[in-house]
Structures are given as structure tokens and as C-alpha cells.
Amino acid sequence: MIGSLLILVKLKTDMPQTKSIFPIPDFTLSPRIDQVGVEERASRFTKRSIKKESKLKGLKLVLNMIDLTTLEGKDTDGKVKQLCYKAMHPHDALAGLPTVAAICVYPTMVKVAKKALEGSGIKVASVATAFPSGQAPKEIKIRDTKYAVANGADEVDMVISRGKFHAGEYNFVFDEIAAIKEACGEARLKVILETGELGTFDKVRRASDIAMYAGADFIKTSTGKIQPAATMPVTLVMLEAIRDFYYKTGRMVGMKPAGGISKSKLALHYLVMVKEVLGEEWLNNHWFRFGASSLANDVLMQMMKEKTGVYQAANYFSVD
């Protein structure tokens, strides 16, 4: 209880701009998660059989939810431009395809991506806050964020300070997220928990709660740089956290599993999970995203198969 009071006081003095009107709970009391139960429930979603028209519709939805990503030290303007073209024209041999949701790049690539995507409606998401480790002082994280936003990022993917989280310094983690949210201005904030470094479902749930109460617009599983990245059980725990938060506050928060989802079938299982846990309102790219790079081509391959009845070789789909 003392913890929650402290946070309230801090909100009033240090960070008036976050405008949080929810009573902030004591995060040590976040709901506990039973590992066996979560894994069992998650595997149940994979038993759903997605066939014919629902498969095609699902695949289109998946394509439209992808944050097409390149986060390499060797990224160049040319690579990013090519990826942006792919985002707008996933596979012109197939008519009636949606675009992907966003392009996800490092802050220095935001300007290039923004220009390449002009007028397409596709968002530019930028990782920030000393991605992927987050091992940098708060001021640098804020500057990193502001730089991305100033260059035109529509969305910012931040990482939490996992070390501080493990040390039990929840107020620090909370404040940092709130500060980044403020630095984002109009940009939507995705908070990466890096669940592969958190260790238990209890901690995933607690970190989700902290992120949402601190102002996250999205919670995201992973950077993609750490194994394991997104898994269905971890995503389920986060979706349930989003549901509880929505009931408590009336505020919707988006979900982005990232890393490790490269096959259409798995992506459809995730959609099943969203449908059965959160329902209709989350089944669009405003509230649900896949952070992936190779998933798009598998989806395209499956769609061509639905159309032509045969699988085409990987060479028929552009590698970007």
C-alpha cells in the first residue's frame, strides 16, 4: 500500500502530464499465474481448425497486422527503402492484398522510412530507449525517443529496465515508462517487456500491469534479440492482463507479440487467442500487431496456395 501511495504522490508532483486518473495498484499484488494452467489453455487454442474462407480472411488479417521489421547494425537506407516498398506492395501478383501495419526500424532510419511510406497510411515505428538492452541513463532514453518522434515516428517501441525490475524497483520502471510516454507526445508507445529475460509468468503479468498503468498504448513481448521471444503462453498472460486492465479502467491497450512467429499457422493460432480472450475490438491492427520479418512471406505463400491450389517455391516471393 505504501508503494501505491508513493506513486500517486510522484504522479502529482513530478509528472503532471501523464494525466493518469486511475488509482495505481500495488504491483507486488499483481495476480499470480499458474504455469501449468496457462500452458494448457494456450495449447487449447492450437486445436482450433481454421479452414477455407476463415483461413483466407485470417491470413489477410495477419498480413495487415504485421510490423515489418529490420533491426540490424548493418541496416542501410537502401535496405529500409526496399522494405518500405514491400510493406506497400507485399506481392503484386496477388490482387486485393492489404498492406502491412507498420515498418519497424532504428531511430536513425525513421526519416528514410517516413519519406518512403508517404501517403501510404503505413505507420513508422521506431525502437528507442537504448534498444535492445535498455542499459542507458533516463535522459539518453528520453532524447532517443524524442529524436525518433521528431523524425516522424508514429509509434515508439521502448524497452523496460529489466535489471531494475528484477531488483524490485517497480517505481523506477513505472516512472521511466511514464517519462517516455510523455516524450512520445502524439506517438503511440509500445512497451517491450523482454519476457525472455523475466523468467516467470508472475513477472510477465506484473511487468504488464506496470506498463499499462504507466501509460503504455501497447505491451510487447520481446525485442527479438533474446530467446525465447514471443510464445503463446506469454502472450496469453499479457492478453489477460490487458483484459483485466480494460475492465478496471475502461482503457484499451494493444498487444504485440514479437520474435519467433514466422509461420502462418502459428500466427492464426495467435489470432484465435485474441478472438477468444479479447474479442472483436482487438481483431485489427490498431490493437494487435505481429513483430516479424519472415512471417509476411509465409502468409503470402499460403495465400497463393489457397488461390492456386499448389505451393510455390520460396523464390517466387521477394526477400527483403
Binding site: R48, S49, I50, K51, K52, E53, S54, K55, K57, G58, L61, L271, K275, E276, G279, E280, L283
Partner: peptide, 8 residues
């Protein structure tokens, strides 16, 4: 839960 995307 009556969603626009349903199972065939």
C-alpha cells in the same frame, strides 16, 4: 466475442 472473423 461474436467476431467478424469466425471459424468455418
Amino acid at each position: 466475442f461474436d467476431t467478424s472473423w469466425s471459424y468455418a
